[in-house]
């Protein structure tokens, strides 16, 4: 599972982790029923507290993306619907544009200009 966190993002870390996991599920090789790596592994790799990762996982469970099962860990319940997947990609695009000094409107202009 490939996860990426923006170190300068002002959002709470658990929100960012949830977004990163959502994105990994969207674009990853995961299908419903697949198990996620243990929360502690994710936390170790990201260098953050395991409770933060657990909080993110609970958020995704509440969205219905993940399923918690006793003794079997956390598994994918369903894939994010295409619209929310697109939304999260669009959010990243706008963030990326911001880094180069472009506003959201500039991005919209660019999108309009695409064939």
């Amino acid at each position: 599972m490939l996860l990426s966190l923006d170190l300068s993002d002002p959002r709470p870390i658990h929100d960012q982790v949830a977004a990163a996991i959502r994105r990994a599920i969207t674009q990853g090789t995961y299908v419903p029923g697949d198990r996620l790596p243990p929360a502690r592994d994710l936390a170790d790799a990201l260098g953050i507290n395991a409770n933060t990762v657990l909080r993110a996982l609970r958020e995704l469970r509440d969205e219905g993306l993940l399923e918690f099962r006793r003794g079997r860990g956390v598994s994918v319940q369903r894939l994010p619907d295409p619209k929310s997947a697109l939304e999260s990609l669009a959010r990243e695009l706008v963030e990326e544009a911001g880094r180069y000094g472009y506003s959201k409107d500039d991005v919209i202009e660019i999108l309009r200009g695409l064939p």
């Binding site: 599972m1 490939l2 996860l3 990426s4 966190l5 790596p37 790799a45 990201l46």
Partner: peptide, 15 residues
């Protein structure tokens, strides 16, 4: 390879 964004921490966890 993947593109790494500056200011981001990217990790991979496999099992």
């Amino acid at each position: 390879t993947v593109r790494l964004h500056p200011g981001r921490r990217t990790v991979w966890v496999g099992r």
